[in-house]
Design a binder for these strands. Structure first.
Lengths: 328, 328
DNA sequence: CTGAAAGCGCTTACAG
DNA sequence: CTGAAAGCGCTTACAG
C-alpha cells in the first residue's frame, strides 16, 4: 500500500519531477509522457499525500471550525454552510467540539495551530473569554479568524454578530405595544449572547416602564417547563414571557397548556432563533429570528477574502427581526 | 511566524534532535537541558507541525467521518460521539458532508485517502452503493472503515446496524394487537434503510393479514402533513399510521389535529428514531427507538480496536425497541 | 546524554 | 521537455 510518486515514476520510466508536474497539471510536458503517466496514475489508484504536499507548499488546505457543542442545531447549521463552501474551494474542515471550559476551548486553538489550518471559525459567543483570546494571540496570530457572535480586539479576528440587545428589545416592545404589561424573561445558559439578550429586555422594561422579572432555566424543554410553572404560580399576573432560546419556549408552551392557560390569550410567548423547533411546535412559536443563514454566509464570504488577503478584516452586525406565529 | 524546531534549537544552544526529544518526552535527556528547552518552547509558544510529524511517523492522527448531511440531527449525534471519543485519544476528526450523489460520496473517499486518515466512519445507509464500495476497495483498502447502518463485503469494513425490518415489524404488530386493522405506512427518502423499514411493514401486513398501504413523503413536516391529509381523505377507514422518520410523524400529527381527528383515539401514530422531535412534539410521539447512542458507542469501540489491530473486523446488529408515548 | 545524518513524500528552481 | 538536487519540518537509528 501507500504508493509514492517515485513508484509511479519508476513504473512510467520518468523522474518524480515529471510525475509531480503531471499530477499538478503543469504545462510543458510532452503529450505522450503526460498520457503515459496519467494512465499509470489512474491504474494504480494513486492519491497524493496532502501532508507532504502541504509541507512544501506551506499550507494545509484545511480550515478549523470550533463549535462549543456540535449537537446544537443552531451551531451545526453554521458549520455546515461553511464546510460546504470551503470544500468547493478544496479545503477540508476540521470541525471540533471545543468543550465547556475556557481552558479546553483555548486548548483547541493550540490543536488547530499544530494542524496549521489556513483559517479558523469560532461559532458561538461562548468563545468570548480571555483564555481563548490569549491563545489566539499566542498561537495563531497570523491566521485569519472569524468569530460568529463574538468580538476580539485582535488584528486577525473578524466578527459577524447578531444584535442580541436589539432583538429582545424589539420583542418586548412588540408585546408592550400590544397591550401586555407583565412581561417576564426566562434566560438560558450564562453566555455573552444571553447576557446581551437580557440587556435588551431590561432596556425595554425601563423605557416602557414595566417591572422586569427574570428567571433562569437550564437548557432543556423540561427545565423551562418547571421554571415556567413556578413563575406563573408565583406571579399570576404575567401575561407574556420571552425565552432566550426557542427550545425553552417550546417546553414552556406545552406546560402552560397543561396548566389550563390559553396561548396567546392568557399568556403570549416569544422564543429566540427561529429554529426548526419553533416551526414544528404546537402551537407554532413566535420567535426572534437571529438570521443564522445570513450570519453564516457572511462568515464564509469574509473568510474567503481573509484567506486571500490575510490583512483583510471586517466587523458585521446583523439585526434580528420578529417572526410572529401562533403564540402572540 | 512559523517557528521550527531548529529555531528553538539555536535559541537553546542544542541540536534539533534534542528539541524533538524534549517535545516528545523521550527519556535520556539531562534534566537541566530538558528544562532549558522546555522554557524556550513555552516562551515562544511553539507548536509542532503535525503534518511534518505525520510524514515521518506515517500517520495523520486524523479520522474521517462521512455524513450525507451533517444537519441531520440523527447523524450528527453519531458524529459527535465519535469525535469526542477520538479527540481524547489525540485524533482530529475530519467531518465531511458527502453530498447527495453516489459519485460525490465516492469522491470523498478519495479525499480522505489523500489526507491519509487513520480510519473512516460512514454514517447512514445512503453510503450503501457500488460507487462507494469501489472507492473503498481502490483507495483505502487497508484503512479500517466502520459503516453505521450499512454493510460492505470488504475485508476492512466493519458494520453496526439497526435492525430496521424488525423495528417497523414490531410497531405494526403492536398496533395490530391493540385493535388497529387499517394501518398505513408513510415512507421518506429512498434509502436502503427506509427500504428495510418498508419490508418490516409488509411482513407484518402479510402475517397479520391487513391490507398494506404505503405512501411516500418528502423529508419535511410540511410534506408529511400534505401526504397525510390526502391519505386520510382517500382512505377514511385508516386508524393508524407509521412514519419512517419522527419528523414526518410530527408534521402529520399536527395536521390530523387540524383536521379534527383525535390522537390516538381516531388515529394512532408511530414515528421512527426516538429523536428530540418526538419528545418535544405535542402530543408526544410514540416512536421506534433505533438506539442511536448504542450504535455510536459501538462504532467508537470497534474503530478503536481496528486502529490498533488493522485486521480487526466486526458486524453488529442492534434491535430497535418501541417507545410508547401519547400518540398510541 | 547529545548531535549529525538520513529519510518521510512531495514541489520547484536550476540546468541541460 | 525532463531530471537531479535541495528543501519543507519533523523523528529516529547510529555514533560518540
Amino acid at each position: 500500500m501507500g504508493l509514492t510518486i517515485y513508484d509511479i515514476a519508476k513504473e512510467a520510466g520518468v523522474s518524480a519531477s515529471t510525475v509531480s508536474r503531471v499530477i499538478n497539471s503543469r504545462p510543458g510536458i510532452k503529450k505522450s509522457t503526460r498520457e503515459k503517466v496519467e494512465k499509470i496514475l489512474k491504474e494504480s489508484n494513486f492519491s497524493v499525500s496532502e501532508a507532504a504536499r502541504g509541507l512544501v507548499n506551506q499550507t494545509s488546505r484545511m480550515i478549523g471550525i470550533l463549535v462549543s457543542d456540535i449537537r446544537n442545531q443552531h451551531h451545526i447549521e453554521g458549520a455546515y454552510m461553511i464546510e460546504q463552501h470551503f470544500m468547493k474551494l478544496g479545503y477540508c474542515s476540521l470541525i471540533l467540539n471545543a468543550g465547556d471550559t475556557d481552558e479546553s476551548k483555548a486548548d483547541y486553538i493550540r490543536i488547530l495551530s499544530s494542524r496549521r489550518v489556513n483559517a479558523v471559525i469560532l461559532i458561538g459567543s461562548a468563545f468570548q473569554n480571555s483564555a481563548v483570546e490569549e491563545a489566539i494571540k499566542d498561537y495563531i496570530p497570523n491566521t485569519p479568524v472569524i468569530f460568529q457572535n463574538g468580538v476580539f480586539s485582535l488584528p486577525n479576528v473578524s466578527s459577524v454578530l447578531s444584535d442580541d440587545v436589539a432583538g429582545t428589545y424589539e420583542a418586548a416592545a412588540y408585546l408592550y405595544n400590544n397591550g401586555h404589561r407583565h412581561i417576564a424573561y426566562v434566560n438560558g445558559n450564562d453566555t455573552p449572547s444571553n447576557r446581551k439578550k437580557v440587556q435588551g429586555y431590561e432596556k425595554a422594561a425601563e423605557e416602557f416602564g414595566f417591572e422586569p422579572l427574570i428567571k433562569v432555566s437550564e437548557d432543556s424543554a423540561e427545565g423551562s417547563a418547571a421554571v415556567t410553572e413556578t413563575l406563573v404560580n408565583e406571579y399570576p399576573e404575567i401575561d407574556a414571557i420571552i425565552y432566550a432560546v426557542d427550545l425553552l419556549g417550546v417546553g414552556a408552551s406545552r406546560k402552560l397548556l397543561d396548566l389550563g392557560k390559553r396561548i396567546p390569550q392568557d399568556i403570549a410567548i416569544i422564543g429566540t432563533d427561529n429554529s426548526p423547533f419553533s416551526m414544528l411546535s404546537n402551537p407554532r412559536l413566535s420567535t426572534i429570528d437571529t438570521k443564522l443563514q445570513d450570519l453564516s454566509s457572511a462568515c464564509s464570504e469574509i473568510l474567503e477574502k481573509a484567506i486571500e488577503n490575510p490583512t483583510y478584516r471586517e466587523h458585521l452586525v446583523i439585526t434580528p427581526s420578529l417572526v410572529l406565529r401562533e403564540t402572540t
